[in-house]
Simulated scan of single mutants.
Amino acid sequence: MMRLGTRASTLARTQSAWVARQLVPGGEGVSDGFQLVNVSTHGDRDRTSPLTRIGGTGVFVSAVREALLAGEVDVVVHSLKDLPTTPAEGIRLAAIPVRENPADALVAREGLTGLNSIPIGGRVGTGSPRRAAQLMLARPDLEIVPIRGNIETRMAFAERGELDAVVLAAAGLLRLGLNDRIAEVFHPWQFLPAPAQGALAVEVREDLDPESPLALALSALDHAPTRFAVAAERALLRALEAGCSAPVATFAEVTGDDRLILKAGVYGRNTTIVRDIHTDETVTVASAEATGRALAEDMLAAGARDLLAEEWLA
């Protein structure tokens, strides 16, 4: 029986169950089946404080990783955008499955069809400084309201009419089958997502035998174009020395000829730095990371560090 560690939220369990089914189709293959093991994290227990005040990067993953290192579970699944960019000792990133839609999406109250349909002075909820910044650039008239909680909690603000709309990751809504709640999906090249948004990370202990059935199954689950894209995005985030809750947005894509396109933005209240880069060589993880670092260095030279020090949400 494979024990798979996960946060207890509906989305986390749905994501983890999807990974488990790829590894144990019909309960056969890697083992005789799987068991989802709920792990409570600090970020789940405190659903009111801004992420920057309760630990920021890693607030949703530390407890899950501790369960893995303690041998309480065999595999753990995270939303990759929640993972710190520094590797964890004793843990290996074994697979990054194919990425779900990386875009952000708007869930609106009844009668609204998208961002432009929100009345002047409308109220939009998000707990993300990155989303707040891009919303204010698109609609300076809006009131951005800080919110926390799981997908259901945040959607309810709009469904009850307390807010005109909320912005969420499209991937979570799609994974939960909530497609019909989406009023608008923002194009990821225009409304840049968080680094690695829509991607999953599957981790195991570093000492797992690479020839074991589990390791081989995880290797088959890994999706190279997704791994290359998120390698560039996360390398940029790390080079900027910014956490997962910083006003940093980036999106990378592998083209049909195996080249990489990367675009990123760092947002301040009065200044925005947006850059993009296209690679000329066939992409590898190493070249993707180098591309991310190079773009970050360009943005730092343009003043990104000062923008990262600004606070968007109280």
Results as ranks from 00 to 15, higher is better:
S79A: 14
N150A: 06
P97K: 14
G114Y: 09
G58C: 01
A239Q: 15
A70S: 14
A304G: 13
L112P: 09
R227N: 10
V185I: 15
A217E: 10
P210R: 12
E241L: 12
S31D: 15
V124N: 06
N150D: 15
P188N: 11
D164S: 05
A249S: 05
F228K: 03
R21I: 05
R181M: 01
T85P: 07
Q15Y: 01
L135G: 07
A264P: 08
A138H: 06
A67F: 07
A288K: 09
P140V: 03
E110H: 14
R3M: 05
Q22M: 12
I91E: 06
I91F: 10
P84Y: 11
E206R: 14
L176R: 07
I273N: 11
L216E: 13
D44W: 10
R47Q: 14
Q197G: 02
Q134F: 02
E253V: 13
D280F: 01
E281N: 09
T153K: 10
G5A: 09
T113Q: 09
T279N: 05
H223R: 09
V39A: 06
L208M: 09
V24W: 10
L106M: 11
L36H: 08
E72A: 14
A199T: 04
L112C: 06
D104P: 00
P87M: 00
M2G: 00
A156D: 14
A171L: 05
A239Y: 06
D276K: 10
R47S: 13
Q15T: 00
H278L: 03
I273S: 09
R21K: 13
R175I: 01
Q22W: 07
E100Q: 11
Q15C: 06
V204T: 15
L4K: 01
V37M: 10
A133T: 03
A309H: 14
A232M: 06
D164R: 06
A301Q: 14
A95N: 13
A309G: 11
V98F: 07
T14W: 00
P247A: 15
S212K: 06
P195T: 04
G55Q: 06
A165T: 07
A12G: 14
L135H: 02
E281W: 02
L221Q: 10
T41W: 10
A12F: 00
H187I: 00
A171R: 09
L68E: 09
E211C: 01
T86H: 13
G114F: 08
V124M: 05
G172A: 01
F251T: 10
R227A: 15
L214E: 03
E72C: 02
L313V: 00
T255E: 10
P188G: 11
A314L: 01
H42N: 00
T255L: 12
G198Q: 13
R234C: 08
Q15S: 07
R293G: 04
